[in-house]
Design a protein around this nucleic acid. Structure first.
Length: 493
RNA sequence: GGCAUCGUGGCCGAGUGGCUAGGCACAGCUCUGCAAAAGCUUGUACAGCGGUUCGAAUCCGCUCGAUGCCUCCA
């Protein structure tokens, strides 16, 4: 199925600042690279939002029938704690603090990262390469950049020469900065004498004797600069020019700017056709960041053990909440917003659960084809998941009308409705229905059905004391009974 | 200080130069033994001040405010 042939997809390209019609380099194929996490602590919710946005985009491409190679790296070296060129490596610092081998730190938090993503129902990327696994490729790129005259070696370290690069190419085009402005606004930094200019950034850093993470290179023992790994891995797996590069908004500068500079200095041309940037998740109106303490861990939401929220929320509710905002908008998380999303999510799931039993007539009161195309239109317009969800709720309304016998649907349309809802809700948005549950809850279902039957008999005998007792006690256990035209159904909260 | 983004009804959040998403909350009605659920109905918002226009929340300018980046962060 190659549905993409019938759809025109528009994407907001950060590089041009415009929505552009998406045209992959090779028809039917997409290469997409997304900057992954630095695995030095537990992944926080803001990270998750970015990756979730690209998971949704990945899912939609696949749904349209594209063959996608999705590369998302793991940064396990080279990312410094402090100033870009003078700080301690994040992983190494954590290892020192926790008295672990750096690779123990990497392993621990990589496992955590995967666990959380699995709970959020992420699709795994096609390739998940690590920085330490690509030291050789990074060294090769540095050699080429030096040969091309855009980098210089000082005392065992190699720096990218931004000034020289800017004379031949353009440094700052992604983030809208001009090198002259940056020079004029440079703040005083101590002990930066090694570099020719403060704007220059490290491609390779000499390892001091106490530095644990080190590799041999033509310039002596050292470790690669942070920006380099993404250039090395994206080039290796997706080629010198590929379709999509994504990441968080905060990586636009300097990280992505430096990637462009490195790739152009190395290969002579632009590495990426479409740059996508996911916006920040804020908590209490401020950006979430581990370093400031204004952050919440996914598990703290799932368990309810946190100071920000009144109760626990499931991964699907959080996912639904995030999908209700456009990926390029700042989204503020709050207790009220999550409560509202939870109700909306449950309403959506109940409608989908009731599809099987939906009665069929020989006419439809719902223009299903038009509705379905509107769902695609929403996603084709820069992955507008909030509009898509609005459309899904239009379908929910129709389903409920049909249940109330105030509307009708044909078998053929019902099939389309079911397929479309399943595709968008589960395949594209990546939500999970909590009612698709395991064996033990099937038994609970059976018990509840029995109680519903007993209550029905009590009601028929006008024994409301008994019927209310059943209803109230189930409610206390978090099982809600709903009396409808077709009989009583229930919902486990 | 520089660069950038944004400011939408009680809350969260889309969007377009005129036809004004959606969710949650609230109110009324229908249904119901009662309730819940579900359905229907109502709520006309776009920071402020100017300007362009037949018409702007949507375009332009200014003011105020918020956030992000400029230093590690998705």
């Amino acid at each position: 199925m190659q549905a993409f042939k019938n759809q025109t997809l528009k994407i907001y390209n950060s590089l041009s600042g415009k929505k552009e019609v998406f045209k992959p380099i090779n028809e039917g194929h997409i290469g997409m690279y997304v900057c992954g996490p630095t695995v030095y602590s537990n992944v926080h919710l803001g990270n998750c939002r970015t990756f979730m946005s690209f998971d949704m985009i990945f899912r939609y491409f696949k749904h349209l029938g594209f063959k996608v190679r999705y590369v998302r790296n793991i940064t396990d070296a080279g990312h410094l704690v402090d100033d870009a060129d003078d700080g301690e490596d994040k992983i190494a610092k954590k290892a020192r603090l926790e008295q672990l081998e750096p690779m123990e730190v990497v392993q621990r938090y990589t496992v955590d990262f995967h666990n959380i993503l699995e709970k959020f129902n992420f699709l795994p990327p096609s390739i998940e390469p690590t920085a330490t696994g690509h030291i050789i490729e990074q060294i090769e790129i540095i050699k080429t950049i030096i040969n091309n005259g855009f980098a210089y070696e000082v005392n065992g370290s190699v720096y990218f020469d931004v000034t020289t690069f800017n004379e031949k190419k353009e440094y700052g085009k992604l983030s809208g900065r001009k090198l002259e402005d940056m020079i004029a606004n440079t703040r005083e930094l101590a002990a930066q004498s090694e570099k020719r200019n403060p704007q220059d950034f490290a491609l390779w850093k000499k390892a001091e004797p106490e530095h644990i993470m080190r590799w041999p290179s033509p310039w002596g023992d050292g470790f690669p600069g942070w920006h380099l790994e993404c250039t090395a891995m994206s080039t290796k797996y997706l080629g010198e020019t590929f379709d999509i590069h994504g990441g968080g908004m905060d990586l636009k500068f300097p990280h992505h700017e430096c990637e462009i500079a490195q790739a152009e200095a190395c290969n002579g041309h632009s590495p990426v056709n479409y740059w996508l940037h996911a916006n920040m998740l804020t908590l209490n109106g401020k950006k979430m960041a581990k370093s400031t303490g204004n952050s919440i861990l996914p598990n703290e939401i799932f368990t309810g053990e946190n100071t920000f929220l009144s109760k626990a929320f499931s991964p699907s509710v959080v996912r639904f909440f995030m999908m209700q905002a456009h990926y390029t908008s700042i989204l503020d998380i709050s207790n009220d917003a999550l409560l509202a999303s939870e109700k909306g999510f449950n309403k959506l799931m109940e409608a989908i659960d009731s599809l099987n039993k939906l009665p069929v007539k020989n006419n439809s009161t719902f223009n299903i084809e038009q509705w379905r195309q509107q769902c695609y239109d929403a996603m084709n317009d820069d992955f507008n998941s909030p509009i898509l969800i609005a459309k899904l709720f239009e379908a929910v309304k129709q389903i409920n009308l049909i249940k109330e016998e105030k509307g009708s649907i044909t078998q053929e349309n019902k099939t389309i409705l079911t397929e479309t809802l399943n595709s968008f809700v589960f395949d594209v948005l990546g939500l999970e229905d909590k009612n698709t549950t395991d064996n033990s809850s099937n038994k609970i279902d059976g018990v509840v059905e029995l109680l519903i039957e007993l209550r029905k008999e009590a009601r028929e005998n006008k024994d409301f004391a008994t019927s209310d007792k059943i209803r109230n006690q189930l409610a206390e256990m978090g099982i809600e009974l709903k009396d409808g035209k077709e009989g009583t159904t229930f919902n486990i909260l």
